[in-house]
């Protein structure tokens, strides 16, 4: 691998030096061309009069509708729950003698830390998300590898077939699994008919159904970034490994897998981060005792109407997800990796 990298750099150097003129006059002409180029670039930059507006509109929009809301979440998480409209107390309060009072209620956070229900839900969410990411990788990796190895005319079709379910409704795809996993559902009927079991298995509302739902819904997110890294993989590296006596399996672990690590990490994060806060899948497929933090937030908000506690849960979840999110951002922003699956193939 290292050899290949250096040889390509060497090629580039050769090409550049071939272009560089040797005579003084030639150098001067080159400098002149460069100078004119530079003036042209400056001219383009100057002529982009609409530029500030084009940048400003999205920055303003996302600041107001994406960033600002988090400040409100942080604020409400320090409020007290009230029976009012809206159901929380104000933090700042003018008392009659001209004193501005700031009341911060840390009770919500204390309760989250003391009540083991929330803590275990948080741990359980991380566990479920991590296992799901691993299972998705386990199923998605061979698929991505398979797609990257077929003829290029077939690749696009196969890739499109992976993306297509992602475009169709998420809720409907979860719903489809209810019909399959129910006690008198298709899967149980099939197993009964074959004779493997003699009474229906309680598949729905179990951890099994939960994992199936997450893996099924997030599989495209895993396959796309994996495919993007695998398809760029230089096949001659594998041939070289084979020539040197490496067996296919060991070539996979020593060459293919290490080189596809950016895709593995990007895909796993794309599954892990949203799965931690997932609500629909645990609610419709998961068991009653599998507590996930997204579902608890939903219950606190809609059933208990306790907006401050729901906000505190959101703050906690954000703190937990900030590190994986920044990792994801870093991978996405790598200049050599702008074709990071999601970007190119979506």
């Amino acid at each position: 691998m290292a050899l290949n990298k250096w040889s390509s750099v060497g090629n580039m150097r050769e090409r550049q030096s071939a272009v560089l003129p040797q005579t003084l006059l030639g150098r001067f002409r080159l400098w002149l061309i460069n100078f004119m180029n530079w003036r042209r670039v400056r001219g383009i930059a100057r002529s982009l009069r609409g530029r500030p507006l084009v940048i400003l509109v999205p920055i303003l929009w996302f600041s107001i509708f994406f960033l600002l809301p988090f400040l409100f979440v942080l604020k409400i998480s320090f409020a007290e729950s009230l029976l009012a409209q809206p159901p929380f107390s104000a933090l700042l309060h003018w008392s009659s003698d001209g004193i501005l009072q700031l009341r911060l209620n840390v009770g919500n956070f204390l309760m989250l830390l003391e009540d083991s229900l929330y803590f275990s839900a948080l741990i359980n969410s991380i566990k479920v998300a991590a296992i799901s990411a691993f299972l998705t990788l386990f199923i998605g990796y061979p698929m991505a590898l398979g797609i990257s190895r077929v003829q290029s005319s077939w690749r696009l079709v196969l890739l499109m077939l992976v993306i297509l379910p992602f475009w169709t409704s998420f809720l409907i795809r979860v719903y489809a699994w209810i019909g399959l996993l129910k006690n008198n559902g298709l899967l149980n009927n099939l197993l009964l008919w074959i004779g493997i079991i003699d009474k229906p298995l309680p598949l729905l509302h179990s951890d099994f159904a939960l994992y199936i739902g997450i893996v099924y819904s997030y599989l495209p997110f895993m396959v796309l970034p994996l495919y993007a890294t695998l398809v760029k993989l230089d096949q001659s590296l594998l041939e070289a490994a084979e020539d040197l006596g490496c067996r296919p399996l060991s070539a996979f672990w020593r060459v293919t897998f290490p080189l596809s690590l950016p895709g593995v990490i990007a895909g796993s994060l794309l599954v892990f981060i949203p799965a931690v806060g997932e609500f629909v899948i645990p609610d419709l497929l998961g068991g009653p005792d599998s507590l996930m933090i997204g579902k608890i937030l939903w219950t606190e908000f809609f059933n208990n109407r306790d907006w401050p506690v729901a906000s505190a849960i959101a703050v906690l979840m954000l703190l937990l997800l900030v590190v994986p999110m920044m990792l994801f951002q870093r991978i996405q922003d790598r200049p050599d990796n702008h074709g990071n699956g999601l970007r190119n193939e979506l």
């Binding site: 979440v73 806060g277 609500f279 939903w298 997800l321 999110m325 994801f328």
Partner: peptide
Amino acid sequence: VMPDVILGLS
């Protein structure tokens, strides 16, 4: 990648 529940609440 932000979980939907956080986006919705905020």
